[in-house]
Amino acid sequence: MGRIHVRTRINGEATEFLCDPRQTLLDALRDELQLTGTKEGCTTGDCGACSVTLDGLLVCSCLVLAAETEGHDVGTIEGMAQGETLHPLQQKFLEHAALQCGVCTPGFLVAAKALLDREPDPSEKQVRYALAGNLCRCTGYDKIIRAVLDAAAELRGDTR
């Protein structure tokens, strides 16, 4: 089977790549485009380490075929910081010590940003349920939840 030529936008940038018809978006990002910030934890959609956005919608990139992204917008962790400035979520994760090993962190940040984009003022419970698809084994989630709530508050402040 030949490889498929895919034209897409990744983090706002027009991007082309070739992929195997069976290749997942996760593998294409990591192996074809060297965007290794998106992590593989399970390949079955259970851990959220490979979270990306597809046209703004949060997805597990291990459950999306790379070829499906033709003509669509993909957002990954590599697109979250703007130049030299971290996104408030990234900054708050650092300030709250919300990561230990850090391998789940990109997925959490992408998922948290997807939450705050649609719900700028979430309750703790909303944050917990929105991030229930992302596994963290190090932190017990406490500091992650606090960082997201703090970032949400700061983002609301910025836009008011």
């Binding site: 990591r30 965007l35 290794t36 910030g37 998106t38 992590k39 593989e40 990954t76 962790i77 590599e78 979250m80 910081a81 971290l86 990234q90 994760f93 650092l94 300030e95 010590a97 990561l99 850090g102 391998v103 962190t105 990109p106 940040l109």
Partner: peptide, 21 residues
Amino acid sequence: TRPIRHDGVDKVTGRANFGAD
């Protein structure tokens, strides 16, 4: 004290290299 960890920025930006990277 509670400084920001030295490897922190690499880990919130996806730049940090883990085993499979």
